[in-house]
């Protein structure tokens, strides 16, 4: 036990001695070498020459030296954002909170933002149009009205082109083709016209007597155009085509009243004892009966019917009771 104590004691004493020795050596080194100071400033007495600010060799704005009779189209030949030194106009643009004039054209971002038309001044447009005239052909003088155009060129084909900034230059809407024509221009006979109307369904507009076929199922405009013309051809020939079952149509299947196929005609013929073509005023009577049956009974059709019957049977006209 004693032995262990002795060893610990000795160790501690040795350690303290070492510490003292280290500390003594540190203090002596500081005294020997002083910390050197870095002198950033130049030594006194000498003046440094002041640097002259660099003068930029900028020309005055170009607009100040422009002649009055210059050709503006050469100064501003193409689309370009606004440049204050080139445009010799005292333009102002922008908003000021307190009362005052809007900012001038120099260092004015508002004027740069808006697309300008300085490259399309009236003389420039005229010059460019004169150059473009050689690619244009005049409109035929004989076709100066809509009626003449309608008569000679009955088919109207409508399609659209699109031009705007989008990721793709192709617009799917450009494929749609619309074919429009007056039904009368096809020159169908009565039966074929009836069948044609059944085939086109609601694509026929009764008011303007026009058929509108819109084709958009193909991916390209040309394909849709060809398809529209194919449809027209198919409809035309199909409407002339007579199926066997079409001849089985009876009077009960008729969707409108036809005087020539009805009992009224037979009665009249029996009454007069001759065919309806030879009876006086029979056509007026036929017309009024057709209208009465097709349009329904109203004061107008009934009055017309009454008049027609009086004419047909040679009865005195209706006496107006006042």
């Amino acid at each position: 036990m004693l032995k262990i104590f002795r060893i610990i004691e000795r160790n501690t004493i040795e350690k303290t001695c070492l510490c003292v020795r280290y500390s003594s050596t540190d203090s002596s080194a500081e005294k020997r070498d002083e910390f050197r100071v870095l002198n950033i400033r130049k030594p006194k007495g000498r003046y440094q020459e002041r640097k002259q600010p660099r003068t930029l060799n900028i020309l005055p704005p170009r607009s100040e030296s422009m002649p009055v009779d210059q050709d503006w189209g050469n100064v501003w030949p193409g689309p370009r954002s606004f440049h204050p030194a080139t445009v010799p106009l005292p333009v102002r643009q922008g908003y000021v909170e307190k009362s005052g004039a809007p900012p001038s054209k120099y260092a004015n971002a508002e004027l740069v933002k808006i697309p300008n038309f300085l490259h399309l001044t009236p003389p420039v447009i005229e010059r460019q149009c004169n150059a473009l005239k050689q690619f244009c052909t005049p409109w035929p003088k004989a076709l100066d009205t809509d009626e003449k155009l309608e008569k000679h060129f009955p088919l109207q084909i409508t399609s659209s082109d699109y031009c705007f900034s989008s990721p793709s230059i192709r617009n799917p809407l450009a494929r749609i083709v619309t074919l429009r024509f007056k039904l009368g221009s096809l020159g169908l006979n009565q039966r074929a016209k009836d069948k044609f109307l059944r085939l086109v369904g609601d694509r026929y507009d009764e008011e303007s007597d026009s058929v509108t076929i819109v084709t958009d199922r193909c991916p390209l405009k040309k394909q849709n155009y060809d398809y529209a013309l194919y449809l027209l051809t198919a409809l035309y020939h199909e409407s002339y085509n007579v199926e066997e079952w079409e001849n089985l149509k009876t009077e009960a299947d008729m969707e409108y009243y036809d005087w020539l196929k009805n009992k009224s005609k037979a009665t009249i013929e029996k009454l007069f004892g001759k065919p309806h073509g030879e009876i006086e005023n029979a056509d007026v009577y036929a017309d009024s009966v057709d209208k009465l049956m097709n349009e329904g009974e109203n004061t107008y059709t009934l009055d017309k019917y009454g008049e027609a019957v009086r004419k047909l049977l040679n009865l005195p006209t209706k006496i107006e009771i006042k």
Binding site: P115, L149, P154, L155, F164, S165, L229, L232, Y240
Partner: peptide, 21 residues
Amino acid sequence: EGVALKATKVEVQAIPEYLVP
């Protein structure tokens, strides 16, 4: 810049010769 254009063309044509009864 910043203007979109849609050009609708209405073409007129005669009735094709093959459309005869």
